[in-house]
């Protein structure tokens, strides 16, 4: 099955995923894209990648001495 309007589909999917879709676009997503299998599959994959980026990447805390060192520099410069 081919998507009738790939460019438009992808655009709305990306807006949905990033929480940037307008009400109108949300409606068109529900009406049209949910029934467009090729695009819906792609959407699931994109969402999965976004979720993995959000949940699996290691976040390091800033080094403990960094804040002190910044404050020290500011105090030295302002006094």
């Amino acid at each position: 099955m081919q998507c009738p309007d790939k460019a438009n589909c992808f655009e709305i999917l990306e807006l949905m995923m990033d929480g940037e879709a307008t009400e109108e676009q949300k409606k068109s997503f529900e009406l049209q894209i949910q029934h467009c299998m090729p695009c819906y599959k792609k959407y699931h994959l994109d969402v999965a990648i976004k979720e993995v980026l959000q949940t699996k990447l290691n976040n390091k805390p800033a080094p403990v001495d960094l804040v002190d060192s910044i404050k020290l520099k500011i105090n030295n410069n302002t006094i």
Binding site: K60, A62, L66, S69, I70
Partner: peptide
Amino acid sequence: HIDSMYNFAYRLTFEEDDAKDLVQ
């Protein structure tokens, strides 16, 4: 925001020392 800043800096530079300098 220092932790977010540090992680952003680290993902740009790939070096802890550079990330620290950049955040500072």
